[in-house]
Nucleic acid binder design. Structure first.
Lengths: 244, 244
DNA sequence: AAAAGAACCTGACAAATATCATGTTATTTG
DNA sequence: CAAATAACATGATATTTGTCAGGTTCTTTT
């Protein structure tokens, strides 16, 4: 009781309350949740916040990061340039996700490029500070490792899907993924709006092929499109498509 | 007869020297290298050794492992059954590699099946003991995590390759991988001998397609085949193929 | 509001890959 | 060793996907 009173007083004195890691709601979605109050306070003073415009690049394949990014707002695509010059989207990350843990832990250059899909708000948590918590806070490191392990599992699944499924199946997979991960607006349209080229980059196909097959799914009543907006009409039908 | 009797006596008195983790050379290739003498001694008493015949299954997708496997001898394929019933080979592991770290750390069922590609010798290091070292031995856990991070990077690369490269390019990749990872015999033939079906499972294609394209590479003088044996004739040529 | 550029779409065709059928050669097994 | 089985190989054909070329529509800029 008296504790929360003190906190209230302090937040009056330092009005930039929204920028304090201790009070940031976003951390509850990631390993940062395991950080202690002290660690968060230390982070607050050394982190930097950034606004990233849609289309802007956070970092590119081969760079060395200065820390890990915590996404407060917006969605970001992690891509890799293929030998034939196409941009393959390996993963989408959004509010609450961390970026760059693998490179930090592995002490390597990043393997993927990160580009904002819409306007973003992110914090850069410096390398040294995060590594310190990683060393000293067992719960934090366990969560980070857990996330990496989960990513690895997903990546293996994804590899097999790319190798064994048809474009139509992969598109159905991708649409269901977007639906379940990012949800829909009031009218049932997917909240993430990707260009056809980006969708093709996720599915792993040529843009023309993607457009064609999306319109096949529309003709078959599984989805409805309205410009860039896509609505899934028959989840069960799409799920059947993914299994052939 | 008297020989095996003596061995029997000795194994009672001095539990078979070759089976002591402290003296096992294989560990130098993996994170186990970081274990202390005491940890190794504890492992020696609780680990179990197994001989696995070619074709035998170590574990299957969905199982819960009782620990991690350390491969002393032989090669093992990690596979995943695709929706269309094909067996996709996600990775090959061999002498010195560990198996099941991800599942152990993530505390999940394994995502892949493991099958011996040739006769193997493995040790099962029980879950509790490994987890104890993982908790208490900083160097060990760091190495394990490092390995998982490396696997993740590889898996992402693999996903992009599956999505963006042609079968011919992927086959060239695979052959070069087998060459660099497992080497060749005196005559220059690849040491790992996979069936065409297994090769197809690595490349992610139909067996017939694999056979056809392998023979194209042979016709183009990049490789020479002699039954199951494959020799890479022009590394630089194959490397060019992988880049289109 | 016109112009420019990006995104979207479709047709025609080519290339890559899968599938089915069938035969041959190795390898394993009774 | 013969028989059975698995592995390998190739042709014919169907299907899937990519590429190129030409449009339309939407968005942004001037």
């Amino acid at each position: 009781m008296s504790g929360s009173f003190r906190i209230f007083i302090r937040s009056l004195k330092y009005p930039a309350a929204m920028n304090k890691c201790e009070q940031c709601m976003v951390k509850q979605f990631s390993a940062l949740h395991a950080l202690t109050r002290n660690e968060l306070i230390r982070l607050t003073v050394c982190k930097t916040s950034e606004y990233i415009k849609k289309g802007q690049v956070l970092f590119e394949e081969g760079e060395h990061l200065r820390g890990i990014y915590c996404i407060k707002k917006g969605i970001c695509k992690l891509t890799k340039l293929s030998a034939n010059g196409r941009e393959h989207i390996v993963k989408l990350v959004s509010r609450g996700d961390l970026l760059g843990q693998r490179s930090l832990i592995g002490n390597e250059a990043v393997n993927l490029s990160a580009t904002a899909v819409n306007d973003m708000e992110i914090c850069l948590l410096p390398r040294e500070e995060i590594l310190r918590s990683f060393e000293n806070n067992r719960e934090f490191s366990a969560k980070v490792i857990h996330e990496v392990c989960h990513d690895l599992k997903e990546a293996h699944n994804s590899t097999v899907n790319m190798a064994q499924k048809t474009v139509k199946q992969r598109l159905a997979d991708t649409l269901l993924y977007l639906y379940h991960t990012f949800g829909t607006d009031q009218d049932g349209y997917l909240l993430v709006q990707l260009t056809r080229e980006e969708l093709a980059g996720m599915v792993g196909t040529a843009t023309e092929s993607l457009i064609r097959i999306l319109s096949v799914l529309a003709r078959e009543q599984y989805v409805a499109t309205d410009g860039k907006k896509i609505r899934l009409e028959q989840l069960s039908g799409l799920e059947k498509v993914t299994l052939m």
